[in-house]
Design a protein around this nucleic acid. Structure first.
Length: 254
DNA sequence: ATGGCTTCATAGTGAAGA
């Protein structure tokens, strides 16, 4: 079973890349973030023709998440039940015994910003909700753009990013609080190349210079960790014309 | 180098991303 996540930065623009990647990689589940589409605009028919069922929670211009899957999921949740939020940032579905969450955590903009406080409050509510999800589903997978680089090894220039948004101690603590619910960062279950990142700024030729951050993650509950055989970041789509600034991350499960 | 791109709302610029 292959599970993947990809912040596509507009599904409208990236649809050809997504269809091509689905065809090449054949994941069982692909979680998307930053679809930037209202639900009535979601390209369900095209996705269905590609062999996938889509569940989504979207809005115009910003945010928006989806889960594409080979089989129909159950018990769809499209918003945090414990946090009043106009922003569409989560969708969850159950496949067999496995609960899958596609999440787009707020960016935070800068640590001085109100958006940073919103990010921390949102993460707090998300963690509380996941605690109750974990009680119901031993096999829980959280995939998405968490907008946190958990450690200096996940940052191209830790000195330059020290204390900045995405790398601040409060955000890293929020990440550890998530793991403390009983998750592992699947990428770190395996030996990985140094300087592995999932996002590179569009500016400054950042991708060519590998000036990136690892902020897209697949968290697996302890009951799923044993079945995880690999976790990779696929840099190939970042090299295409008009790429998303994020690369897909994928785990293979026994 | 505090922007440098890119997207989306717009119809000339501005917000937001990370």
């Amino acid at each position: 079973m292959k599970l993947a996540t990809w912040n596509v930065n507009s599904l409208n623009v990236r649809l050809p890349h997504v269809l091509s990647w689905l065809h090449q990689q054949q994941p069982d589940v692909l979680c998307l973030q930053e679809t930037k589409l209202e639900d009535k605009q979601f390209p369900s028919d095209v996705i269905r023709d590609a062999g996938y069922i889509a569940a989504f929670s979207g809005q115009k211009t910003y945010n928006g998440v989806a889960i594409l899957s080979r089989t129909e999921g159950a018990d769809c949740v499209r918003a945090l039940p414990n946090f009043i939020d106009e922003q569409k940032r989560i969708v969850a579905l159950t496949f067999g015994e496995v609960r899958v969450v596609s999440v787009y955590v707020p960016n935070g903009q800068s640590i001085e910003s109100d958006k940073y406080q919103y990010k921390l409050a949102w993460l707090n509510a998300f963690t509380d909700w996941l605690r109750s999800e974990a009680q119901r589903h031993a096999k829980l997978a959280v995939l998405g753009d968490l907008n946190i680089a958990p450690a200096d090894a996940d940052v191209h220039d830790p000195k330059a990013w020290e204390g900045q948004v995405l790398c601040s101690e409060q955000e890293r603590k929020a990440f550890r609080d998530l793991l403390a619910l009983g998750f592992k960062d699947s990428f770190r279950l395996f030996e990985q190349p140094a300087a592995s990142f999932s996002w590179w700024d569009y500016r400054m030729m950042a991708f060519r210079r590998n000036m990136g951050l690892r902020i897209d993650h697949i968290l697996l509950s302890d009951a799923l960790v044993g079945a995880c055989q690999s976790c990779i970041i696929d840099r190939a789509p970042r090299k295409l014309e008009r790429p998303s600034d994020h690369a897909p991350v994928m785990v293979e499960m026994a």
